[in-house]
């Protein structure tokens, strides 16, 4: 029974890998690091997630997408629990996620231990000579920068 449960839980993680972030669809919700745990209580599946930002409007969409993905795959009884503590940090984003972000044209977040005054590297030309245009970008999680070399403006996924 335990072995069987473990196989199902592994299958669930594979399914969750297929749920994209609605605002940055190249990232899965696992890349983002918001899925904290997957549990089975008899027939019921519980997915524990943590919000990125308190007011992130994508969280409702993400809960819905998780539910749909699991229902599509035969899991009828799905419970989604949102927990606040420990607070989400960009350090939980996977290395693979950071590579995907850069390819997509968004500068990935630095590790939170690093000094915050150094500018992010331009995702287009990899120049380190970039400047902040606005601390707030197109979504709650991003800031707007511009590259001083190739002159392209770009989004930076804020360290959080």
């Amino acid at each position: 029974m335990v072995v069987e449960n473990n196989i199902i839980i592994e299958a669930l993680w594979v399914l969750l890998e297929q749920v994209p972030d609605p605002e940055i669809p190249v990232l899965s919700i696992l890349d983002l690091g918001i899925v904290r745990d997957v549990q089975m209580h008899g027939e019921q599946i519980e997915i524990i997630i943590t919000p990125t930002y308190s007011g992130c409007p994508a969280m409702d969409a993400i809960s819905m997408d998780i539910r749909l993905k699991l229902i599509e795959n035969g899991f009828k009884d799905v419970k989604i629990t949102s927990i606040l503590s420990p607070a989400w940090t960009t350090d939980w984003m996977t290395q693979e996620g950071k590579i995907k972000l850069k390819k997509y044209g968004i500068a990935p977040p630095k590790m939170s231990g690093n000094s915050s005054d150094s500018s992010p590297v331009c995702p287009q030309c990899s120049s380190a000579d970039t400047k902040l245009l606005s601390q707030f970008g197109s979504t709650a999680c991003k800031a707007l920068y511009q590259c001083n070399d190739c002159k392209e403006p770009f989004d930076y996924f804020k360290c959080h």
């Binding site: 919000p51 930002y53 308190s54 007011g55 992130c56 409007p57 606040l84 245009l133 606005s134 601390q135 707030f136 970008g137 197109s138 709650a140 707007l144």
Partner: peptide, 20 residues
């Protein structure tokens, strides 16, 4: 535009906190 976005982003954080 950038400042319009900034104040509304701040506002989004505030409403999220108040919802909690």
């Amino acid at each position: 535009l950038e400042q319009d976005i900034a104040i509304t982003n701040i506002t989004l954080d505030l409403i999220g906190q108040s919802r909690n």
